[in-house]
Simulated scan of single mutants.
Amino acid sequence: MNAYGEWVIDTALTQISRWQELGLKFLVRTSVNIAAIQLQQPDFTQRLTTLLATHPDVEPCYLELEVLETSALDDVQHVSKIMEACIAMGVNFALDDFGTGYSSLTYLRRLPAKLIKIDQSFVRDMLHDADDLAIVEGVIALAKSFNREVIAEGVETIEHGTALLKLGCELAQGYGIAKPMPAGDIPEWISGWRPDISWQT
């Protein structure tokens, strides 16, 4: 694990710990981007174990590692074993930008990631582009077939969220939910946020 990647994960764990000290009840995981090259480092699992040990108050299930550049994974079988070892510790994985890589189906079949992220380039125009809508529908159907959760990136409007809910996608991120904010503002936002009435079932 490179020094910068290690610092990012350590910082995320420190922040989760601070939120817990404030009494924040977690309903979602905190996601950290990791590059394909970082995940393939021979000491990745060992270094992650050490980082988790330095934050004993943080349950590993609250950390999610979001794998970027999946097309750059050289040895899928090797990476799968690394991910399985991390999952055994309680850490979750997500595959980022699903649908944009040429080997996406291979990764879906062979990598034990719990969550699939639909790339925002498809979500953004799905309301008026039939092809993008078909891709979003297809990714959601694939995720369900492989017993994976699915989250849509780039949900900018209430209409986007409504359409995704109708397709069976209940997780989303984007300005339609919240804009980026300082970590200190998160507890108040979580306590006060309510979904749009059209999103409530």
Rank of each mutant, 00 (worst) to 15 (best):
D185L: 08
Q200D: 05
D57V: 02
Q15M: 10
P112V: 03
T11L: 14
A143D: 15
V155R: 07
K114F: 00
T11A: 11
E153Y: 11
K144C: 11
V58W: 04
V76Y: 06
Q77N: 12
T100R: 06
R124G: 02
G5E: 06
V79W: 00
S198E: 07
G184C: 08
H128Y: 13
Q120D: 09
L39P: 05
L164C: 11
P195V: 11
P60M: 03
G174E: 01
E159H: 12
V8K: 02
R110T: 07
A172Q: 11
A183M: 04
Q15P: 14
K144W: 11
T70K: 06
I34K: 06
K179A: 06
Q120P: 07
Q77D: 10
S104M: 03
D75W: 10
L68R: 03
K166Y: 13
G5F: 13
I34S: 07
D74E: 06
K144F: 10
T11W: 09
T157L: 11
S198L: 15
A113R: 02
H55P: 12
I37K: 09
K81P: 05
Q15W: 05
T54Q: 15
D129Y: 04
A183S: 14
I118V: 03
T11M: 12
D129P: 07
D131P: 04
A172E: 06
F44A: 11
V58K: 00
D119N: 03
Y102C: 14
A3L: 13
A183L: 02
T54S: 15
H55I: 09
V58C: 01
E69I: 07
L52N: 02
T30N: 00
D196N: 15
L142T: 15
P182A: 11
S104N: 08
G176F: 04
R124I: 00
E69F: 03
I186G: 00
P195H: 08
E149M: 12
D125V: 09
I135Y: 04
T70W: 01
Q173M: 05
D10H: 15
D119Q: 01
Y62C: 01
V76I: 14
I37C: 06
V32E: 04
N147F: 13
I190A: 13
I37H: 13
H128N: 12
L13G: 00
T162W: 11
I34D: 10
V32T: 08
L27Y: 07
D196R: 12
Q200I: 09
A113S: 05
A94D: 01
T49I: 15
A141V: 12
E137H: 09
P56L: 14
H55Y: 11
